[in-house]
Amino acid sequence: MTRGTVLKYARIIGTGSALPDKVVTNADLEKIVETTDEWIRTRTGISERHYAADGETTGDLAFLAAQRALEAAGVKASEIDLIIIGTTTPDLIFPSTACLVQHRLGANGCAAFDVNAACSGFVYALGIANAFVRSGQSKKALVIGAETLTRMVDWTERETCVLFGDGAGAVVLEASDEPGIFTTRMRADGGFKHLLFNPVGVSVGFTNAPNHGVKINMLGREVFKVAVKTLDSLVGETLADAGMKEDEIDWLIPHQANLRIIEATAKRLNMSMDRVIVTVDKHANTSSGSVPLALDYAVRSGKVKRGQNLLLEAFGGGFTWASALLRY
């Protein structure tokens, strides 16, 4: 790249999403764990969530979301030269779920890999794809966030089992001279690992913990405190990096984990909740699937329109946190 070359933008030209057919309400959960609809709604804002069916995988949901995003973009799978999936619940240890989805789409030959940044996975993946497009290494990229988190839920822990759902969302990025992604920010601090983690892994072993270790360990109050603090700082960093002010943001599209965290971020931006996309009530926390699911809902519902500025942000286990400020 020669000195003075102006980098192209990575612009979203299509969105898509996929949710399992099975809907589980708070009333349904009352029958299997000691909880109430009121307890769940007042603390999280969640009313219902979707659960993957037996045999339905993260890759299945990612594939459907990708198909819908490609259709919306008017792009053939063979035109895609990069696929990145943000997920913490891949189909297999290897190959990556991105490789599996690539083959099903018929996009064989392009770069394809997964990113595990927990709930920040999609925004991390979007940031990576943005760098590929702006550097000229990619012209059309498919970025997906997909999860089947309910596969690791411990049904004896009411504080966590009510929080999660399954789903996937996707976007197609294209190199463009028109404004697209202005800036992305990615941060992490492994010092907070003990507050939110799953103890299972290849190196540490699969069966050396109760319930085979397939469970989410979370200290909710502590996670809440750190999430609000770090997202507050992240918002400021993102705006400063893009040279924009709070009132220039048309929509906040946050990670859908907890309504109170979402409200705290909106308050930091001096934004009315009328300008915040909220899907946590219907989807619960779908981890890396939550931001692209919310984005696709916002686009297809007609709320988000071309030319508007969107702030995407997420926070997840690691801890990780990330943002993207873009023009749709």
Rank of each mutant, 00 (worst) to 15 (best):
R3C: 04
T5R: 15
K8T: 11
A10V: 02
I13A: 08
T15H: 10
K22M: 14
T25D: 06
D28Y: 09
L29M: 15
V33D: 06
T35R: 09
I40N: 02
T44F: 10
I46M: 08
E48N: 06
E48H: 07
A66P: 02
R68L: 04
A73C: 13
S78A: 15
E79S: 14
D81I: 13
T88E: 10
V101P: 08
H103F: 00
G109A: 13
A112T: 05
S120M: 07
S120D: 04
G121M: 02
L126G: 03
A129T: 12
N130G: 00
L142A: 11
A146P: 05
T156A: 07
C161P: 02
A175H: 03
E178P: 00
T184F: 02
G190W: 09
G190T: 12
G190K: 08
G191I: 09
H194K: 14
F197M: 09
F197E: 01
G201N: 11
G205Q: 11
N211I: 04
N211D: 03
L219S: 03
R221Q: 11
E222R: 11
S233P: 00
S233V: 14
A240C: 07
K245A: 14
E248H: 08
W251V: 00
P254Q: 06
R260E: 01
K267G: 05
K267E: 14
L269A: 03
S272M: 06
R275Q: 11
V278A: 01
T286A: 12
V291P: 03
L293T: 10
L295C: 13
A298E: 04
A298G: 15
L311K: 03
L311T: 05
A314F: 02
A314M: 01
G318V: 00
T320M: 00
